[in-house]
Simulated assay, not measured.
Amino acid sequence: MTHGRVEDAWGSGECAGEEIERDHVSDSVPLRHRLAWDGMLGEHGGRHSERFHPEAWRQLSRTARDLDRLGREFHPSGEERPLEWIGDIGVKHCKPGWHRFGLAFDLSRVSWKGTYCDMNAHWRDGADRSDRLRYLAVLCLCRCHFGVVLHGRNDPDGSHANHVHLDRSRHANRLSEGHLSDQTLVHMAANEYLGADLIVGGGWGEGTERSYRTMLDRLGLADRGLEPREGGDRFRVMLRLLARTAFQGAELGDHRV
């Protein structure tokens, strides 16, 4: 279903603009809305529709295709685990920010066949390491397609502990040391794989730079002169390698360029 365009919705700040209504992403992956809680885990209802700006729906669909490939090719069991559905807590809302235009998505769960990642439970210190790594894998693939990724460890206003917020407000795709969406991914990966003790989101100091250079070496990026700070295509190579490593429960360096 496609609704009409409203003139100058961006300039006026009205809760209006180009939008489409979808109950799925990618070709046929259903959307399911989080309705309740079972302890720390979100409970989701059946398939439902949300209103998107077309660009946000396209980017989420690209993310879903990457998540599907991750499950089919890199599950630790060696079996194919296709993406079955994606959980959300909303897209277009009449409030300040990119949700006003349907250009933001609040992700609550990713479910593959027999495997899932809950965005409230699996980033926390008490979670199993395999769950934390799966969460990191999801964040990395989200960052491939969205400029801003807010989550439990990148939560500037204290509202993202139970979901991952995605939007396109930052269009530069290369890795940026000062951009928290990028900085926190490097910190989380370094802490998990290198035994670093970096404060997630605590700045890009000498310790972060050392850990970052070590990760580039182990992923094979340094040997090929592929510096993620110099281009979005190079950064996405790094993100996809980290996602495969984390999802599979592999060692850093098992997946290389």
Rank of each mutant, 00 (worst) to 15 (best):
A127I: 03
A127Q: 02
D128G: 08
D128S: 11
R129H: 09
R129L: 15
S130M: 07
D131L: 14
D131E: 11
R132I: 00
R132Q: 14
L133A: 11
L133I: 08
Y135P: 07
Y135N: 03
Y135M: 03
L136Y: 10
A137T: 00
L139V: 03
L139E: 01
L141I: 03
R143G: 04
C144H: 02
C144R: 09
H145S: 06
G147R: 02
G147K: 00
V148K: 10
V148D: 12
V148C: 04
V149M: 00
V149I: 02
L150A: 08
L150Q: 05
L150W: 07
H151M: 06
H151R: 05
R153Q: 12
R153K: 13
N154M: 05
N154F: 09
N154P: 06
P156Y: 06
P156R: 06
P156M: 00
D157E: 12
D157K: 11
G158Y: 02
G158S: 13
S159N: 15
S159Y: 15
S159T: 15
S159K: 14
S159E: 15
S159D: 15
H160M: 09
H160S: 08
A161G: 15
A161M: 10
A161P: 03
N162R: 14
N162G: 11
N162M: 07
V164Q: 10
H165F: 09
D167R: 10
D167N: 06
S169K: 05
R170F: 04
R170G: 04
R170P: 00
R170H: 14
H171M: 07
H171N: 13
A172K: 14
R174N: 13
L175M: 15
L175E: 08
S176G: 14
E177R: 15
G178F: 04
H179F: 10
H179E: 04
H179C: 02
S181P: 11
S181K: 03
D182T: 04
Q183D: 13
T184V: 08
V186T: 09
V186W: 02
H187F: 01
M188I: 12
M188T: 12
A189D: 10
N191A: 10
E192I: 07
E192C: 05
E192H: 14
E192M: 13
E192W: 09
Y193E: 12
Y193P: 13
L194W: 07
L194V: 08
L194Y: 06
G195H: 04
A196S: 15
A196Y: 05
A196K: 11
A196W: 05
A196L: 03
A196C: 06
D197R: 12
L198T: 06
L198F: 05
I199P: 09
I199H: 14
V200R: 10
G201R: 01
G202I: 05
G202A: 01
G203I: 05
G203K: 07
G203Y: 06
G203Q: 08
W204D: 00
W204V: 00
G205R: 05
E206A: 13
T208F: 01
E209H: 08
E209C: 00
E209K: 13
E209F: 04
R210N: 09
S211E: 09
S211R: 07
Y212R: 04
Y212C: 01
R213D: 13
R213G: 03
R213V: 06
T214Y: 00
T214K: 12
L216E: 12
L216N: 11
D217P: 11
D217F: 09
R218F: 07
R218G: 10
G220M: 08
L221F: 04
L221S: 07
